[in-house]
Design a protein around this nucleic acid. Structure first.
Length: 877
RNA sequence: GGGCGCAUAGCUCAGCUGGUUAGAGCGCUUGCUUCACACGCAAGAGGUCAGGGAUUCGAGUUCCUUUGCGCCCACCA
């Protein structure tokens, strides 16, 4: 550690200087590393696997929040004595990364085809090295206490082996199959994408009403479509089986306009009778519903566009046009030939690729799929029976709904960056070989094999992350000890992409749920509540914030007011106030160190505790219990608030002030020891939230052990609970506040001191408090007793005392009377409320004893205060 | 079409299983170069907890309902 001590440092805390140094100190100490203990060890593990950030990017506020929450949990559990493992790593993010690399290459005038698969992968790995490292560095800036010795990558050797293992197992079980199905195709990314990767957005569109002539010349059918160009691929027309309007036509044919070919009229319940004309053109190759209809009626599938969204050889004269060009041309032709009835405006949802925003083209092609039903069922069950729970619980509904309605998962991607599908096709016999190891020749006919060109969906490997990173499929000590993991921390926006897939994968391959709790947080929005996005340019860079205010301030700001599952707004003001809080603690520490000076300070509490000591210690003790409980319930925002209030209000504004006179006197040692004790306790409680500054201060205070981050989490101690003294101290504090209030109201300058007479039945308490009145309430002297005879004094009434301050020149009898009368009325009103409740038999009988007791005490206090006020009024004359 | 969330001080939000007089930050007003801190101290103003109804001794908190805003899912071509 630095040999500088805090007292030589300036008045304001400088996080930039401290944070990097502290982080290096932690890393050097190896404090982030967790070891897998054997069976007989009673140290319990606590594990979080990081949602691996994509190597495409840099840290954004969402990451900052996500990782702050994880670090809070992991640091807290580590201090509680758990073997706390935070497993870090990055994700190859196949489609996103590939798109970025293609984009970068385009600037050099290169395409993927120009440099070939190998050349491309070489570039991709270079990219990974560069940007993977950058994001890890950024996580470190945040203070993340990940076990970096275990850092993983979704495409590293181990993860790749797990991917192959899973692929082969599922294939052999019949849960992975290859087939020609309709999938979502992105013409820009040039690949299939899964249903989860399609984002729907309502857009204005046109509804084209077309007329298809009946083949027997007896008339025509009118139907409506939003995609007229797909008529080139129509292979039927459908009506509802119960639709009496069209019943007689089922089985007949219509003539497809322009194309001129005959296609059948089929009956299918998929058609909504009430929508449009009740007739639907069926294009199995370009619409998922039509594809299903096609399967049921054994219709041919005719694909009319190619992979770039260009009309293909089946499009006749429209061949070579883009989809939009073709739409325009075909509508024009239909109109000229009298097949277009009308065009209506229509709002409908259009699916777009979640990566690039291009409109998705449903398209039939040969792909690999995971059969979902058998995997979804146990995943639903595991949450239903509580093996895994969501915080907050409401997200379980979302989870169930998704899994209950899930369709098979298209896992093949026409991309190069990713895990290549471990399937080989025999050039000779056409056999498919799916294998863990690369294969050279066909086991059946010894013919040449060709590996599938495609790679797997990036989420296929992240689905295995909780166990692949721990060594699965090998039976490693890590897997044995740390798996199942404990808490998964992630945003609600990736429940579908990731959480569900980890759930069913964990259950299928390890027989266990991957984590017991899914802790969901919301999005970080900008100051106006908008989603932070690149296109809006309203994103805030966490690294810039860290440089300006410090990582502690950023973390604290993100944790403050954060409630599970809810979005939050990010503002600089929040970080600023967190920065101010850090500075407050820093200065409290400076104060303590200044007062310690060269004195030795025992690290335990002194034998004899003064009233104010018992008050702060007892309140601190309560804080320990509450913060711990809040953390257990994932109420991080509440825990933060309590820490803030205690440190700023109770400790700094009151206890330090209460101590000051004692620190000048003979009894300074006791005060120093209490200050150090409570300060160190606070630092421990605050450490998970503000790791850097707490460590820095702790290192400068008298301490045992190497580092705060490995020291013990405070525990509630029965012996430190002093409820009577807390109440006693509150009486004094209430009186001090009341005096300050009066003085402020009367514009008494702080420099003007005045004697204070306290009439009370708590003689000892207020005698003990005399010194505080002098220091904190502008008292030149304090007398405690009964019935002081004073003329023209200001009266201040609390529940426990009447305080009189003779300040003749300031007393305005009339104003004084008005003020006391007003206060009396207010107290009377409060008393009425309490009495109404106490006089209600139902309340007294039914409410819990402590509630009734509180009400009684309250009534007593109000009555006393009322009589004191009346007395003061009488004396005033 | 289905589901979910939000509505509390001027602004941004907390408020756990219902229990004294509803809290914080920022902002605002007044005073203070008080020997840790002006990134500070002290005092203060400011709320019929969106509207209506119900349950209860007691509702910001539970239930029903209305209104407004937001999100997710589904995809009637």
């Amino acid at each position: 550690m630095s040999d500088k001590t805090i007292k030589n440092l300036p008045k304001t805390y400088n996080p930039g200087e401290v944070e990097d140094r502290i982080y290096r100190f932690w890393q050097k100490g190896g404090y982030f590393h967790a070891v897998a203990h054997g069976e007989n060890c009673d140290i319990k593990p606590y594990t979080i696997v990081i949602p691996p950030p994509n190597i495409t990017g840099q840290l954004h506020m969402g990451h900052a929040l996500d990782n702050t929450l994880q670090d809070i949990l992991i640091r807290w559990r580590r201090m509680q004595g758990y073997e706390a493992l935070w497993m870090p790593g990055t994700d190859h993010a196949s489609i996103a990364t590939e798109a970025k690399i293609v984009e970068a290459m385009a600037k050099e005038g290169l395409t993927k085809q120009d440099i070939g698969r190998e050349g491309f992968l070489k570039r991709a790995w270079e990219w990974k090295e560069k940007y993977g490292r950058r994001i890890i560095e950024q996580l470190k800036k945040l203070g993340s206490s990940c076990d970096w010795e275990r850092e993983r990558f979704t495409m590293d050797e181990g993860c790749s082996r797990a991917v192959r293992e899973v692929f082969v197992r599922l294939y052999e079980k019949g849960l992975i199959y290859r087939g020609e199905r309709i999938i979502n195709w992105c013409i820009n990314c040039h690949t299939s994408i899964s249903d989860a990767e399609v984002e729907y957005d309502e857009r204005d569109a046109a509804f084209y009403h077309l007329r298809y002539p009946l083949a027997d010349g007896s008339g025509h059918l009118e139907l409506a479509t939003t995609r007229p160009e797909t008529m080139l691929g129509d292979t039927a027309v459908a009506v509802h089986p119960d639709d009496s309007r069209y019943a007689h036509l089922v089985g007949k044919n219509v003539i497809l306009p322009i194309v001129g070919k005959e296609i059948p009229i089929v009956a299918d319940a998929y058609v909504e009778m009430d929508f449009g004309t009740g007739v639907v053109k069926i294009t199995p190759a370009h619409d998922p519903n039509d594809f299903e209809v096609g399967l049921r009626h054994d219709l041919p599938v005719l694909t009319v566009t190619d992979e770039d969204g260009i009309m293909n050889e089946h499009a006749g004269k429209y061949r070579g046009m883009t989809i939009m060009q073709c739409r325009k041309a075909i509508v024009n032709d239909l109109q000229q030939q009298g097949y277009l009835v009308k065009i209506e405006p229509l709002k409908h949802n259009v699916g777009a690729c979640y990566r690039c925003g291009t409109v998705v083209e449903p398209r039939v092609s040969m792909q690999w799929f995971v059969k979902m039903k058998p995997l979804a069922t146990p995943a639903i069950e595991a949450v239903k029976n509580g093996q895994t729970r969501f915080v907050p619980e409401r997200f379980e509904k979302v989870y169930f709904h998704w899994l209950e309605n899930i369709r098979d998962w298209c896992i093949s991607r026409q991309l190069w960056w990713g895990h290549r599908i471990p399937a080989w096709y025999c050039e000779g016999c056409g056999d498919i070989v799916v294998s863990l190891e690369d294969v050279e020749e066909c086991p059946k006919c010894k013919g040449d094999l060709r590996q599938d060109e495609d790679t797997l969906d990036t989420w296929f490997s992240s689905a295995l992350w909780p166990f692949s990173t721990l060594g699965w499929p090998d039976k490693t000590p890590e897997l044995d000890y740390f798996y199942p993991t404990n808490t998964l921390v992630t945003g609600y926006d990736i429940i579908f992409f990731w959480v569900v897939r980890m759930m069913f994968s964990g259950l299928e391959h390890t027989g266990k749920v991957p984590f017991d709790t899914v802790f969901i947080h919301g999005l970080v929005r900008d100051a106006q509540g908008r989603k932070m996005s690149k296109s809006l340019g309203n994103g805030v860079d966490p690294i810039e914030i860290i440089e300006k205010y410090g990582a502690d301030a950023l973390r604290f700001a993100l944790a403050t007011g954060n409630s599970p599952g809810n979005d939050m707004r990010f503002t600089d003001e929040k970080v600023e106030s967190s920065r101010n809080f850090a500075n407050k603690i820093y200065n409290a520490a400076r104060f303590i160190l200044l007062n310690i000076g060269d004195n030795e300070v025992e690290q335990s509490l002194p034998e004899k505790l003064e009233l104010e000591d018992k008050w702060i210690v007892s309140r601190y003790n309560t804080l320990v219990a509450e913060v711990t409980e809040n953390l257990e319930k994932f109420e991080l925002g509440i825990a933060v608030q309590k820490l803030y209030d205690f440190i700023w209000d109770s400790f700094c504004d009151w206890y330090i002030e209460l101590c000051k006179s004692r620190l000048q006197g003979d009894n300074a040692d006791g005060a120093r020891r209490v200050l150090v004790f409570v300060m160190k306790g606070m630092l421990a409680l605050l450490h998970p939230f503000m790791p850097f500054i707490t460590e820095e201060i702790w290192q400068n205070l008298p301490h045992e052990g190497e580092t705060l981050m490995k020291s013990a989490w405070p525990v509630y101690d029965e012996n430190l609970s002093f409820s009577d003294e807390e109440k006693e101290m509150e009486r004094i504090m209430e009186a001090i506040r009341a005096i300050r209030n009066r003085r402020a109201e009367m514009n008494v300058p702080p420099s003007k001191k005045a004697p204070v007479y306290i009439e009370t039945s708590f003689i000892d308490t207020f005698k003990r408090g005399a010194v505080f009145f002098e220091r904190l309430a502008g008292a030149s002297s304090v007398k405690v007793g009964h019935d002081f005879e004073l003329n023209g004094a200001v009266s201040i009434v609390t529940a426990d005392a009447t305080i009189k301050i003779p300040m003749d020149e300031l007393v305005d009898k009339q104003a004084e009377r008005a003020r006391l009368t007003k206060e009396k009325e207010s107290v009377q009103k409060q008393l009425q409320g309490v009495m109404a409740r106490l006089n209600n038999q139902a309340f007294v009988n039914k409410a819990p004893a402590n509630v009734v007791e509180n009400a009684r005490e309250n009534a007593t206090r109000l009555k006393e205060k009322l009589s004191l006020l009346e007395q003061s009024l009488t004396e005033l004359g």
